[in-house]
Write a protein that binds this DNA or RNA. Sequence first.
DNA 1: GCGGATCAC
DNA 2: TATGGTGATCCGC
Length: 644
Amino acid sequence: MEGVDKEKVQRIVYEMSKGSKYFVNEEKKEAYMKQKVNSMQAQLAKFTALDISHHQKIADKRIVELEATRDLSRIWLHVDMDAFYAAVETLCNPSLKGKPMAVGGMSMISTANYEARKFGVRAAMPGFIAHKLCPELIFVPVDFKKYTYYSDLTRKVFQKYDPNFLAASLDEAYLDITSYCNDKGMTAGEVAEELRESVYKETGLTCSAGVAPNRLLAKKSWLADVGKGNRKRGESTEDLIESPEIMDKAVRVCSDINKPNGQFVLPNERMAVMTFISSLPIRKIGGIGKVTENILNGVFGITTCEEMLQKSSFICALFSRTSADFFLSVGLGLGRTDMPQVTQRKSMSNERTFSPTEDEALIYQKLVDISENLSSDLKKQGFRGRTLTLKLKTSCFEVRTRAVTLPNYICSSEDILKHATKLLKAELPVSLRLMGLRMSHFSEGREGVAIDPKQKTLANFIVTENASGSGHEDQTLTESDINDDALAIRRETSFCSDKHEPCESVDFADTYQLPDHNQTDITYCHNEAENGGTFDLQIDDFRENVDNHDTVRGSTHLFPTGGGQLVDRDSSSGLIAESGPDKCKSTDDEAVFWLNDYQCSVCGIELPPSFVEERREHFDFHLAQRLQDEESSNINRNLKPKQR
DNA sequence: GCGGATCAC
DNA sequence: TATGGTGATCCGC
């Protein structure tokens, strides 16, 4: 931000932190990171010119394949409310207007208004440091009820532009405005203007919007700042200042940048995308955090997305296939353009920080509280799980987790406490500052969720004569039917096509889609060991960006399509159309389901008869998918936009 | 399946 | 005095 004395801020933060246990731990983490960089540098130094040219060929091929998946047909809009919590608080208490204010407390603040940011106050900064930076800073406690209320108001607006919009958090959303633009004959920029105006009218809050051909770019398209240094943890993305350099380039190809309360439109043209991405710092990309940035910069000297392509041979040489694909796609400005599947929650947790203690009675009491809290949350949502994870943070900020997977599903506080106590006892004596419990590995059904007897289950679906589901038309849906969790179907199954053992996890919900009757989508995982050891980075949301796998079967060559899906060229579309999802209507049909006893008639995936479990799961998957499709089409027919 | 690490908000 | 809570994912083992 303009007017921030960065050096002074840095000095104060350092003075306040120096010597603290937190700071010592941070230094430890940094040392670990440097070690990682050194180790990779050493690995890189071993490569011969021949190795590099080999990997360059692989990289070039991969870039061509990724480029072929580029889809410029959709218009995505990303909305982000400006300093949301702080703005809501000011709306509710206008006397705060114009004064530096932060939402949070002395130990941690959630967000700060723009007046406070001028002093260097940031989200995720401890309050006492913020107070030092800005003695007149007003602290307002967090109040999620308020933020949820205003968030709902904004979402009502978003709904008008894309009924299926994607809420990323209370203050962020993705909208596919392709249809809206076409129907209204408006440009994306005009739609963004109208939407922001409408949000302001409904809430009194301002927001910023980015428009681009994919979600990755839509989110980043108003974050363009070049050469402004790295974003620190907690520094809001809203703080970023646009540099004249990118402004010039971007404005030439796009429209204006203005933040806060601004918008930025990246046209659906490859040139515009490439120009935009060319000088975009890698840290701005979702999924590239502090560590990844340090590695890419420290090992390869990469600072901008464009350099990902320039260093593609090194990237392919040192990283796993998954990581390399992600980095290359970032360099190409590729991102997801489809609407992701609704996902079921996978875990639920409760954790609390307290003043450090080694008093075992006290620690045990905290565990009792946390068990009760977690149990209560689980019961509210009707979840039962069988993996319980205890999280501890020692007084020195070292984090440990200890997990147990039980033979049965539990949710009562007594059961949770019983197992959590066992996990904790093994760690005593210990001095702690945080404890938490996480439940995962949920059972399929949910307790406490009313089951509509008319709603089809897998079992009654199988015995239903007409699999297309006539008689669903009159079905009225209850609240529980439209619950996201109830609708979600997500399976994690591993296949390895050349070995009879699981390798990489393939998430069907994201990588797998039912064919649209004229193409077959196939995903395989590929166990590649290019040059002995590869380094793997953990790329969150990787599938947001790339959705591509290779086959290892010589007979079935796969070609990427524009939608990021893979198409089996050899598949007969007629065959698929003939033996589509309708095949999955009874267990008898499971035999017919496998063409030549090894190929799935719906999607074409190949699974030999020996893969009994996998085949069963695969069959179930299509069945479930089919059910889900039916349910959602019913919902779309019967629900008002609000319910949806 | 477990534990450590990374990331986003 | 004092550096969060929740959820997800990935990797090596």
